[in-house]
Design a protein around this nucleic acid. Structure first.
Length: 214
DNA sequence: ACCCAGGTGGCCC
DNA sequence: GGGCCACATGGG
């Protein structure tokens, strides 16, 4: 592990500037998650695609109210239209119920749940997730890093903006940036989670109060 | 009435 | 492999 590189220095800089991000993202950034919290994070990762966390959170609360905040429950749904009204605040209500169902169905039927999926080989589970329609690279890596605690770096819009601003790379293609971060950081779930969270805190200019009470 | 947040798939070339 | 578009919401 080289210690003199821009990515690692970015990590040290942001860590010094903001402190460990579990203060603002207490639940996402701890490895000690309950099985239910993993499911909430996974469902949230899909609902927050191209929408603010606030809107995804409204949808999560609706699901909770209907006792549907569970992969098993969603996978066993016979009628997806039931989800349409509930996830409406998160937008894209014609596509997200299908995406949510396909993911839940995959996790439940192929692995019996997230606890077993966590034990799968990282590259195998990543490819399987990418094979689900509606799960692209960012969602796959978010699921791996935060719901499954696998060392897969997440490249989001904030990361791309910051890379561009600081001229850390000229090629902004997803896989290229992912490789750039992974090869320059200790291969470690906590480090990946913390830097991703710190980048968002830095770019948003404030510490979002994500996942407070769902 | 705007403008913003902020992934993915399906086109087209 | 890149560029463009549709998909939908809640909040400032």
């Amino acid at each position: 592990m080289p210690t003199t590189n821009k990515v690692y220095h970015l990590y040290l800089e942001l860590l010094q500037k903001y402190g460990p991000p579990e203060k603002s993202w207490p639940q996402w950034c701890t490895p000690e998650k309950t099985p239910q919290l993993r499911e909430i994070i996974a469902i949230g990762a899909i609902l927050t695609q191209r929408t603010s966390w606030h809107n995804a959170d409204l949808a999560l609360r609706n699901l909770k109210k209907e006792r549907l905040l569970s992969l098993q429950k969603i996978a066993n749904l016979s009628n997806l239209e039931q989800l349409t009204g509930l996830i409406k605040p998160s937008g894209f209500y014609q596509t997200k119920p299908r995406r949510l169902y396909d993911f839940c169905s995959f996790a439940v039927r192929e692995y019996g749940g997230l606890e077993n999926l966590m034990k799968e080989d990282l590259e195998v589970s990543r490819q399987k997730l990418l094979g689900i329609k509606g799960i692209g690279p960012e969602t796959a890596d978010t699921l791996l890093l935060y719901a499954l605690d696998q060392p897969s770096f997440v490249v989001d819009e904030y990361t791309k903006r910051l890379v561009k601003k600081r001229k850390l790379a000229t090629n902004l293609a997803y896989e290229h940036l992912k490789n750039l971060f992974e090869k320059n950081l200790p291969r470690n779930v906590k480090t990946y989670q913390d830097l991703h969270a710190l980048i968002i805190i830095e770019e948003k200019g404030k510490a979002g109060s994500v996942m407070q009470e769902v």
